[in-house]
């Protein structure tokens, strides 16, 4: 099981971001909060069959 700090290193690597040492602690805190918040979105049962709110129109 990879810990949160390894996961943070992974996503930073994918995004090509290299924070300063003094940022790491805040980034890790924000990472964990963000993951918890994102999980909230998947608890909304009514969203199961819903279209996204952002809509595309072929006409520019």
């Amino acid at each position: 099981m990879t810990g949160d700090d390894q996961k943070l290193d992974v996503v930073l690597e994918i995004c090509g971001i290299s924070p300063l040492p003094q940022d790491k602690e805040i980034m890790l805190k924000n990472f964990v909060t963000a993951r918890e918040q994102a999980a909230l979105l998947w608890g909304v049962a009514e969203a199961r069959y819903e279209e996204p709110g952002l809509i595309f129109s072929a006409k520019l």
Partner: peptide, 16 residues
Amino acid sequence: MSPSSEEIVTSLLSMA
């Protein structure tokens, strides 16, 4: 040392 593809995939699958 930045994470390898293997570590990245392991981590992303675990996150998902």
